[in-house]
């Protein structure tokens, strides 16, 4: 399977949103709809990116490891759309309002932290950066787990009452983090 398939799969949610936008399909509240869907896909693809390592272990194929950058960058792409929608349509570019939100509302603070962290990881995702940062690159990019945890906390804190989706993501990210933290235990399970 070629990388193009992964690219197409990652782009599909965006194309769907674009199609819905052209066909009045973004619900009666298009801004909230776009915010929710782009947020969903940022966190979905973060989880997918984190799942590639265990998948590589399970299958013994390096193909999965090579897809991490593309999937991770797509997660950042959706996070950008998510943040931009909030900045343009909720804040109307009012940075004072952004500062107030960051101080007053903890779910915005953790969400924004996750976004900045993802931006740093995206900026250092090039081959050149990998070479230049050497050992530090790996240390830095382990922070993708922190992004995922912050994203789940962001989701958990923002919902009004129904926590079942944030809980599902919490279990997913928790399991993936568990896999990473306990490699020896995990290896035993697989073998």
């Amino acid at each position: 399977m070629s990388a193009a398939v992964v690219f197409a799969a990652c782009l599909a949610p965006f194309l769907r949103l674009a199609w819905l936008a052209c066909h009045a399909g973004l619900s009666p509240n298009p801004v909230a709809f776009v915010e929710h869907r782009t947020g969903d896909w940022a966190i979905n693809l973060l989880c997918a990116a984190l799942a590639l390592r265990p998948l590589a272990r399970l299958t013994g194929s390096s193909w999965f490891m090579k897809r991490r950058r593309m999937v991770g960058l797509f997660a950042f792409f959706y996070a950008c759309l998510h943040f931009t929608t909030y900045l343009v349509f909720d804040l109307e570019f009012d940075l004072g309002q952004l500062a107030e939100d960051l101080v007053k509302r903890r779910y915005i603070l953790v969400g924004f932290s996750a976004f900045l962290l993802m931006a740093a990881l995206a900026a250092t995702s090039t081959d050149g950066m990998i070479r230049r940062l050497r050992k530090n690159w790996q240390r830095l990019h382990r922070l993708v787990y922190a992004c995922a945890v912050l994203a789940v906390v962001h989701y958990w804190w923002l919902v009004k009452k129904d926590h079942h989706w944030p809980a599902i993501y919490g279990v997913a990210v928790g399991s993936l983090l568990g896999c990473r933290l306990l490699p020896s235990f995990w290896r035993k399970v697989v073998v």
């Binding site: 009666p28 509240n29 801004v31 909230a32 349509f89 909720d90 109307e92 107030e100 939100d101 509302r105 779910y107 804190w157 923002l158």
Partner: peptide, 16 residues
């Protein structure tokens, strides 16, 4: 506690 009530989005309108 988690969001401002100063503005609202009237459905059908783009800006608050």
């Amino acid at each position: 506690p988690r969001w401002s009530q100063a503005r609202e989005r009237r459905l059908g309108e783009l800006w608050k």
